[in-house]
Nucleic acid binder design. Structure first.
Length: 517
RNA sequence: GCGGGCGUAGCUCAGUGGUAGAGUGUCACCUUGCCAAGGUGAAUGUCGAGGGUUCGAAUCCCUUCGCCCGCUCCA
């Protein structure tokens, strides 16, 4: 093997999100959904290169989580089984999980202050008399309450109203006329509060042809509940013992208030979730192990730089199910649109036994559904460590991290994917489209293609072909030239350095295989 | 949901009431012997959509959809 050229790479300029979005479209990574009809907010399609990239990410996750050996904190192999549960489930699932009750809140906007309030947290104070002003404040907020009381007193003094006929009402019971005489918590004028509107974050649909209350169902807002509801099935059908995990990759749907930032916050998205079931007393150990292993995993698949951080949640930002327990942490990436801040890629949460016991209660069997631990001769609801990752966010982070500008090369940019993530592993070209070179190159191409994704290109100048592969992020380009045709070799061009080395034709498939796996 | 900005060829953009353009990319052929080279030729547009004003609208007005930024939201 001999070096031919080694150009010096130039330092990368700061990344602009619009450039990344443009490349994604131009090269077929990501398109806007239903674009020819003007698109639809919060939905995206993956093109030929994009679907490969995303699938490589999901396959890497599934391989590393479910299929390959993984050694846990106790030195034993970690046992995880797969699952593919349905998107539409019995709606009671979402009552048990807290999604129907807790996240279907009526909201009120104030046109004057631009503030938004939970309607069921607004209390209205004032006279029962018609046309008298009412003052709203936020429940349990003493400052707000005092301000409303003061405002009311001043108003009633001015208008000489009788303050003895006051009453408190929830904003929820107000009529349109009442709202028109209500002053919002941060407002000066009356009538600036809108009516209460439901911000249901779950997509509703109906199962069965009859569309009524009884057929109401939801598109799942997370894949996790499909795992929890199958916990008992998996235990009964598989020889699993705590500690063990169930892994699932699947779509989930949330009616986000504001889809924003390319695919980062979409209404339809794909999750890669593990629910790992443990003995309650081992939560700290497993939580820390999962957190660290997952952080390490993201680094290995191409997010190795300082743009990736692990962030432990503060107590006061913990979700309702994680108030007690070992903690919650996020693995976050510094996207161009969040910089200098970070956006969440994966959350690792100790959910305690919140979900299993909630489902046990709601399905009516209660404590009878506790897991029996043979070894300890004890019954309990296992605690759960949940590493929950976004496949679309992961794909986007890889795209952003890989995007590298380089003024010295023709394309001006290349995608620095790791070989494992790269949609195309190798481009195979004849240097010129004659003299028997295409035939040799095509034989090599077919040989590589038996195991790896490769592209054959004999059109146009060699420079254009390299440039195209740079934008697709192909790590290796193999060119059959005249020297090679006589000596049985070809040059392999490395994407990042543009350096070339000469390798014997029969060794090239192994060369690729070594670097891709 | 609110406020601001923006939507013209795949991409970057010009065109401000009178025949839709340029560069670049794409494709074909020739040439070429390692980095978007050169030559010749070709294809490509609901001017985001709908409505209105006008003899005539990419251009002016209204509505709407989408994208970006700031709020808001984010289990």
């Amino acid at each position: 093997m001999s070096e031919i050229t080694t150009p010096t790479p130039s330092p990368s300029a700061p990344k602009k999100m619009e450039d990344i979005v443009a490349l994604c479209r131009r090269r077929g990574f990501i398109f806007q959904s239903s674009e020819i009809y003007g698109g639809i907010n919060g939905f995206w399609d993956y093109g030929p290169l994009g679907v490969s990239l995303k699938r490589n990410l999901k396959n890497a996750w599934w391989n590393d989580v479910v299929e390959r050996e993984l050694i846990g904190p106790d030195g034993d192999a970690v046992h995880i089984v797969g699952l593919d549960s349905s998107i539409i489930m019995n709606p009671k699932t979402w009552i048990a999980s807290g999604h129907v009750g807790g996240f279907n809140d009526p909201m009120v906007d104030c046109k004057e202050s631009k503030q938004r309030y939970r309607a069921d947290h607004l209390i209205v104070l004032g006279s029962t008399a018609d046309n008298a002003r009412l003052y709203a404040y936020i429940e349990n907020d003493e400052e707000q309450c005092a301000a409303a009381t003061k405002g009311l007193a001043r108003y009633e003094k001015r208008d000489a109203l009788d303050p003895s006929v006051h009453m408190l009402r929830s904003f929820m019971v107000l009529t349109a006329e009442d709202r028109a005489r209500t002053v919002g918590p941060h407002a000066k004028e009356v009538g600036t509060l809108t009516e209460a509107r439901k911000f249901g974050l779950m997509f509703e649909t109906n199962s069965g042809a009859v569309r009524d209350e009884s057929s109401l169902t939801y598109l799942r807002p997370e894949t996790a509940q499909g795992i929890f509801t199958n916990f008992w099935n998996v235990c009964d059908s598989t020889r699993v013992r705590v500690p063990f995990g169930i892994a699932q990759i699947g779509k989930a749907f949330r009616n986000e208030v504001t889809p924003r930032n390319f695919t980062f916050r979409s209404r339809e998205f794909e999750q890669m979730e593990i629910e790992f079931f443990i003995r309650p007393d081992s939560a700290n150990e497993w939580y820390a192990w999962w957190r660290d292993w997952r952080f390490n995993w993201w680094q290995q698949i191409g997010l190795a730089g300082e743009n990736l951080i692990l962030r432990e949640h503060d107590r006061d930002e913990l979700a309702h199910y994680a108030k007690v327990g070992a903690g919650t942490s996020d693995i976050e990436y510094r996207f161009p649109f969040t910089a200098p801040g970070f956006g969440e890629l994966e959350g690792i949460a100790h959910r305690a036994d919140f979900d299993l016991s909630a489902h046990a209660t709601h399905c009516g069997k209660g404590d009878k559904m506790r897991y029996f631990d043979q070894e300890k001769n004890e019954r309990y609801f296992p605690h759960v460590i949940e590493p929950s990752a976004g496949a679309d966010r992961g794909t986007l982070a890889i795209l952003c991290e890989a995007y590298t500008t380089d003024a010295t090369r023709a394309s001006g940019v290349y995608m620095n994917f790791t070989p494992r993530m790269a949609p195309v592993k190798a481009g195979v070209f004849p240097l010129v489209n004659k003299d028997g070179l295409p035939e040799i190159a095509e034989r090599l191409f077919r040989d590589i293609r038996k195991k790896h994704v490769a592209e054959f290109d004999e059109k146009q100048s060699i420079g254009k072909r390299y440039a195209r592969m740079d934008e697709a992020g192909t790590p290796f380009c193999i060119t059959v030239d005249h020297d090679g045709a006589t000596s049985g070799t070809a040059t392999i061009r490395h994407r990042n350095t543009q350096a070339q080395e000469r390798v014997a034709l029969e060794q090239i498939p192994a060369f690729i295989a070594e670097r891709v796996e």
